[in-house]
Amino acid sequence: MHALPQALPEGPVLVPCCGTFPELDVLTGQLPGREIVGIDLSAGMAARARNRAAGNPLVPALEGATLERDELLSFPMVHPDADTFFTAHTRSGPMRPLADARGEEFIAVLREEFLRRAPEGEWRHRPSARHIVARA
């Protein structure tokens, strides 16, 4: 949340799983004048976000969304070795926030320990994600 891309496309900024909307102040500060749309599948969390954003004309009410698709997707992934797996996870995967927060020096130490303990050979896994489409 501390490093937004330099050039965002035009249009509203979507905040999925907005819940308590902790991003609101940072987004409105760094993107003045941009509409910010928070969505959450939990009615209770959407209500909390709505309360948090009350009075902000750039944040529309979070009501009336219709769920059009909700499915679990999974695809096999193969990495030729542990180093490639680690790089993928720390540069563009689930460990990217840790790398951003702790820095390259920390990640270098972590990489060294990971590779020391990792088995050799090809790495296969099948991550899954929830694909949700909602229309307001």
Rank of each mutant, 00 (worst) to 15 (best):
P97Q: 05
R135P: 00
P94A: 15
P16K: 08
L62E: 06
G103Q: 04
L4C: 03
A101E: 08
M77F: 12
I107A: 01
E112T: 15
E23P: 07
R111G: 04
L73I: 15
L73Y: 02
G11A: 03
E71T: 11
A54Q: 10
G64K: 14
H79I: 00
A46E: 13
H89N: 08
E120G: 07
D83H: 07
R69P: 04
P57F: 06
R124E: 09
A129N: 06
N51V: 12
A65E: 14
P32G: 06
E63W: 02
P76L: 13
V13Y: 09
F106S: 02
A7P: 05
R34Y: 06
M77D: 09
F75R: 14
R102M: 14
V59T: 10
P57T: 01
M1C: 01
H89T: 05
A43H: 14
L73Q: 09
E113M: 12
R91G: 00
R91V: 03
R91I: 00
L58T: 04
L4N: 02
L58R: 13
L8F: 00
P12Y: 08
L110A: 14
I36H: 03
V37P: 11
V26T: 15
P80M: 09
L98I: 10
V37S: 07
E122W: 01
G103T: 08
A136Q: 09
E120D: 08
L8W: 01
H89L: 14
R69L: 05
N51K: 13
G93I: 09
D83W: 02
A54L: 07
L62F: 06
G93W: 05
A136N: 07
V37R: 06
F85I: 01
I132H: 03
R102V: 11
A43K: 15
P32E: 07
R50G: 11
L67R: 06
R135F: 03
D40N: 03
P94S: 15
L24N: 00
R48A: 06
F106V: 03
S74N: 05
P94E: 09
E113T: 15
P127V: 09
A88V: 05
P76F: 12
E122Q: 11
L27A: 02
H79D: 10
R124T: 12
P5S: 02
M95R: 13
T66M: 10
G44Q: 06
G44K: 09
P80H: 04
R126E: 15
T66A: 12
R91D: 09
L62V: 11
N51D: 13
C18S: 13
Q30T: 10
A43R: 15
P22I: 12
A61G: 08
A118D: 11
A129G: 12
P76Q: 02
S128M: 15
M45P: 10
F106N: 00
A7C: 04
P119Q: 03
L72Q: 09
D83P: 03
A99C: 08
